[in-house]
């Protein structure tokens, strides 16, 4: 347990030291939001607002996750294999990536509210949607990046692997957030939230069980 916390601390410290990565993500987010603004995003309907938000969140998550195993590439792989077991590594990565993605999506939500106005009538449900979505994304994208990294061709392969797999989550989560925007009664949303929670748990467990088979030579 303490090992997991140390690993997460290490990832965070590494990320802060390597400030280039954070700034490039930040500029990407600013740029893409402003681009949408220029293309008429401020007149977007609720539905388009939601769709645009999820497209931006999704690509930000893909960009973030594509660096999940940057630390462990090449010779450092053996070093990290020595200091932590595969189960600890995957739990630490999943928590770290979920938090990072959540951080990014909150920033995107803020930017969208700033430029196009915040039309969400149920912010708690909307935030819940973001949290559940990010947890699901992090499991799938982390595992897909692990697969791509171990197969030695990480750049395009991880996106090809992850894109179709993330669609069920993307679909559920955009429905939840659409409900949150129009202020649908909670009973209607609860069923979708329930199935998304189940899906998240199932994917997380699968990633946890399968990762040790990847993490060996």
């Amino acid at each position: 347990m303490s090992n997991i916390r140390l690993l997460i601390q290490r990832y965070i410290r590494q990320e802060i030291r390597n400030s280039n990565a954070i700034f490039s993500l930040g500029i990407y987010l600013m740029g893409i939001t402003y681009l949408i603004y220029q293309l008429g995003g401020s007149n977007a309907s609720d539905n388009s607002w939601n769709t645009l938000l999820w497209v931006v969140v999704f690509f930000a998550c893909i960009m973030q996750a594509s660096r999940s195993f940057e630390l462990e590439s090449r010779d450092y792989f053996y070093y990290y294999q020595c200091i932590a077991g595969p189960k600890e590594t995957i739990v630490a990565k999943l928590i770290y990536n979920s938090l990072y993605m959540l951080f990014l999506s909150v920033i995107i939500w803020g930017l969208f509210s700033l430029f196009y106005g915040n039309e969400v009538s149920r912010p708690t449900v909307f935030a819940l949607g973001l949290i559940l979505g990010c947890v699901g994304f992090s499991s799938i994208l982390t595992l897909a990046n692990g697969i791509a990294e171990r197969s030695g061709r990480s750049t395009t392969l991880s996106t090809i692997l992850a894109l179709p797999l993330t669609l069920p989550i993307l679909k559920l989560v955009s429905t939840i957030n659409m409900h949150a925007m129009v202020g649908a009664p909670f009973d209607e949303t609860a069923a979708i939230i329930g199935s998304l929670v189940t899906l998240d748990i199932a994917i997380g467990l699968l990633a946890y069980m399968l990762f040790p088979y990847l993490w060996q030579d």
């Binding site: 171990r150 990633a207 399968l210 990847l214």
Partner: peptide, 11 residues
Amino acid sequence: ISAVYNIFAFV
């Protein structure tokens, strides 16, 4: 590696 992906993909 492909077995790991296949299990995940099937689910």
